[in-house]
């Protein structure tokens, strides 16, 4: 097992409010790591720290280290744009570029990366959409607007767009919370299919989803990482009483 990301003494703030307190954990390569916890526990802030998106909010800051393949993404020599290319993100609400076609949504990032040959771009677009398990549904309408797709299809398009630039890590912030059960099942299946190529971190409110899709699970509470363990252990025999209370629905 290789540690793709090593998080050391990570703290995060919004102004004077501390959202994360001394987080230490490792994300294994080619695995799915789920981050669970009640609203406001810091799970979204945590993943946003992993590709330097947290810092784009006014007054937001962090301390500590996030090592990607051993190199600190917060080092002064590190380029946030490059970090975000290696660590892609899929958000809660599907956010395709509304003025672009399905094809261009996926092609945009590839073009930005400097690839100009049309057939190369077309190949990469097809490969990405196929990997996102969307190809059969959109292959006949690639040049129609992305907004014409259903919510579930739009979300898979966003995943295709993320995959297209060949990131190493994919962060997913509640990628299925706005989707119907069938679309959710598509996304979950997709994660299983692509995890041998990527390292996936998923934030989810849905404990069953964490149990179904992930290899490791971290439980956050009030900005602290309470427990981090293999998912089967977490859901059969959690080590901490607070984890047990949360995953069995006794919380609050």
């Amino acid at each position: 097992m290789t540690k793709k990301l090593i998080i050391e003494h990570l703290n995060a703030w919004f102004g004077s409010v501390q959202a994360l307190k001394d987080i230490n954990l490792n994300i294994e390569e080619n695995s799915v790591t789920a981050v669970i916890g009640p609203s406001g526990c810091g799970k979204t802030t945590f993943v946003r720290c992993l590709n330097r998106i947290h810092e784009v909010v006014d007054n937001a800051r962090i301390s500590g280290k996030v090592l990607l393949d051993g190199e600190d993404i917060y080092a002064s020599t590190s380029d946030p744009v490059l970090v975000r290319r290696r660590i892609g993100m899929v958000f809660q609400k599907p956010n395709p570029f509304p003025t672009m076609s399905i094809f261009d949504n996926v092609a945009a990032g590839i073009r930005l990366n400097g690839i100009k040959k049309k057939n190369e771009i077309a190949d990469a677009v097809e490969r990405s959409i196929k990997m996102a398990a969307l190809w059969d549904e959109v292959k006949d309408k690639l040049y129609k607007s992305a907004t014409a797709l259903s919510g579930g299809q739009q979300q898979r398009l966003c995943i295709a767009r993320t995959i297209a630039v060949e990131p190493e890590v994919i962060l997913m912030d509640e990628p299925a919370s706005a989707l119907d059960p069938i679309s959710t099942a598509h996304i979950e299946e997709l994660m299983q299919q692509i995890k041998d190529k990527y390292t996936i971190v998923i934030v989810t409110h849905n404990m069953q989803q964490a149990a179904r899709v992930s290899d490791y699970t971290g439980f956050f509470l009030l900005g602290e990482l309470i427990e981090f363990s293999k998912t089967p252990d977490m859901f059969t025999n959690p080590g901490d009483k607070r984890t047990e209370d949360y995953i069995t629905g006794r919380f609050g």
Partner: peptide, 9 residues
Amino acid sequence: RQPQAGDLR
């Protein structure tokens, strides 16, 4: 109920 943890055991 899709029980977890202690409930599942």
